[in-house]
Design a binder for these strands. Structure first.
Length: 559
RNA sequence: UGAUCCAUGGUGUAAUGGUAGCACUCCGGUUUUUGGUAUCGUCAGUCAAGGUUCGAGUCCUUGUGGAUCAACCA
């Protein structure tokens, strides 16, 4: 047991400091607050792992809170997918809550604001208000409606609430400071009129609170000790604190907002807007297209929750902008799948091999372990016969000594089977090789214990028996974009960098044991990569997705 | 010509004024019935200039570079 001291990230340091300054450990409480307006992606996974990870580390509850204050964009479908994704990642929340749970409380507080002269109704157009707001470098000016009487504000706000005004005609604003250097403090909108059906509150409300006026208060009501969000909310913190100042009880815990840098991944985009665009323009097949960086896409691609959690762990968090190399994510899946995935055989680009000295009608079932190096994986019988498929690229008529695979006049081992020697080829009129004729060494069967079986031959090939092979569709994925950061160019659209070869559909042959594989089962196709069973699979039609290829130092040599 | 935040190998992150470390990537060796895995190793970094200090990646100043902020979005 190495008592290695793990360094704390800056948020853990803040928490430790708060604890040292007297915050009781039992008061620690976190939350993950998605807006249910889209599917979760790998960037959200960072936040999920962070918040739920802190919960685990400090044995503190973590709420899943849907930030559902904009009925125009939010849907139950997204609520469901988000819950599914968080659970699939392996986390357990304390409570599922909704910002909409607090609409009444927020409204009651707002009445107090109005009575105390801290909020006013503005009936100017959004253009007028924008013009008065100033710019980051110039101060704003006060709205002509800023000094309405309490009575008038109360009356107008009630009319807003009762649906007597049109959408867009009136808003309620907090009275703060139109000259503040922070734009968010220039009399921000607290409520707008939205005559929309809300996925939870139905038509109970036609005024909806804005994000800023909801988030901190929700944190406070749930007694969240540390409200962790991404960097772009940094400038909202003044407002978060200002709102809290108006409502916080001295004997209750006051939540603290802190910000970290969102996680970006190379060769993809992460904004919901762009992801939505890929879906709507049918560039991908859906939110769960295996090329998407969504949790559902990664799941369908064959990523395991463990690998995603490990990725978040080792990528870490900080406050600077980053583009994390997708190779790190790929390393994490390969690392996990290497330990957990059974090894099987599949040939993606077949060429027929005929073993001329093997009896025509003979077939045998060879015992093959699902993992030669680890216990507990079990084994299955794989059929062997006179005709087999191997990969085209595993054969050359002539090649130099560095080519360990099959070539005329030399030997290779067939994995879990015999040593064969290539004798001749058959070609069609065009000169393409259609068959490779080999002979086999009858005494060389793997694991038979004979002298011949122990012979060292340099190459070992995977194969499937022609007679017994199952046909399968294999979807080979590559990165969706050709540029490391496709959305980092101001003058170019991210779609200019789409990779035209991000999907390759292959007709392959797989060993018969895979016939019974279930959707999402993960395998290593030996010498090729990790693959999982796609949901498009039916009894008649097997479909696999390539999660990630194996490292291939041979292919690299050729470059 | 504002405010706020950020700056450590190619990438991501540590070092809490005291030996710049870890992982990925790249490259090379060994092992191997997966050109995989495992294992060993190489290359590679504190944005710049001043200052404080016995000592600065860390503190201060000034630059430089980047990010964020002007939705009735979150």
């Amino acid at each position: 047991m190495s008592e290695e001291k793990k360094s704390l990230n800056f948020l853990e340091q803040i928490i430790e400091e708060d604890l040292a300054n007297g915050l009781p450990k039992e008061k620690l409480r976190f939350r993950f607050p998605p807006e249910p307006n889209g599917y979760l992606h790998i960037g959200h996974a960072a936040s999920i792992c962070l918040n739920f990870g802190l919960g685990l580390k400090y044995n503190a509850p973590v709420n899943l809170r849907f930030d559902d204050t904009n009925p125009a964009k939010e849907e139950q479908e997204y609520v469901d997918s988000i819950q599914h994704d968080v659970q699939w990642l392996g986390f357990q929340w304390d409570q599922v809550l909704y910002s909409s749970d607090y609409f009444q409380q927020l409204y009651d507080w707002t009445l107090e604001f109005i009575k105390q002269g801290k909020a006013y109704v503005d009936n100017q157009s959004s253009e007028q208000m924008a013009a008065q707001k100033g710019t980051p470098t110039e101060p704003g000016i006060d709205s002509p409606n800023r000094n309405r009487s309490v009575e008038e504000n109360m009356e107008l706000f009630l009319k807003m609430k009762n649906g007597e005004f049109e959408e867009g005609s009136h808003v309620l604003r907090a009275k703060i400071d139109m000259k503040h250097t922070n734009m968010h403090m220039r009399d921000p909108i607290m409520y707008r009129i939205l005559k929309r059906h809300h996925h939870r509150t139905g038509n109970n409300w036609c005024i909806y609170p804005m994000y800023d006026w909801t988030h901190g208060e929700s944190d406070y009501l749930e007694q969240i000790s540390h409200s962790i969000c991404t960097l772009e909310f940094k400038s909202h913190r003044d407002l978060y604190d200002w709102y809290l100042d108006q409502v916080v009880d001295a004997d209750k815990l006051r939540p603290k907002q802190r910000e970290f840098a969102r996680r970006n991944l190379s060769y993809t985009v992460m904004s919901k807007r762009k992801l939505l665009q890929l879906v709507e323009e049918k560039i991908v097949t859906g939110w769960d297209d295996p090329r998407m960086p969504t949790i559902s896409g990664l799941r369908r691609r064959g990523y395991s929750p463990e690998s995603i959690r490990n990725f978040s762990e080792i990528a870490g968090i900080a406050k600077r902008d980053n583009v994390t190399d997708v190779a790190l994510l790929e390393f994490c899946v390969k690392d996990h799948l290497n330990k957990t995935a059974p090894r099987v055989m599949a040939v993606l680009d077949p060429i027929k091999v005929i073993i001329t000295n093997y009896p025509e009608e003979k077939e045998e079932f060879l015992d093959a372990s699902y993992n030669d190096y680890e216990d507990g994986f079990g084994s299955r019988a794989i059929p062997f016969s006179r005709e087999i498929y191997i990969e085209q690229e595993d054969f050359k008529e002539e090649a130099n000594k560095k080519f360990f695979r099959l070539k005329l006049g030399s030997e290779v081992r067939l994995k879990n089977a015999y040593i064969i020697k290539a004798e001749s080829v058959v070609k069609d009129e065009a000169g393409n090789i259609t068959e490779i004729h080999c002979t086999y060494d009858e005494d060389s069967l793997s694991g038979s214990g004979t002298e011949e079986s122990k012979r060292k031959v340099k190459g070992t090939l995977h194969w499937v028996s022609v007679k017994h092979a199952e046909k399968a569709e294999v979807r080979v994925y590559d990165r969706l974009f050709t540029d490391e950061a496709p959305d980092s160019y101001k003058d170019k659209d991210f779609k200019e960098f789409l990779n035209p070869d991000s999907l390759n559909i292959i007709k392959a042959f797989v060993e018969p044991s895979l016939k019974t594989a279930k959707i999402l089962d993960r395998f290593q196709f030996q010498r090729l990569g990790y693959f999982c069973v796609d949901k498009d699979t039916t009894n008649e039609h097997l479909v696999f997705n390539r999660t990630v290829p194996l490292r291939d130092s041979w292919a690299k040599m050729g470059e």
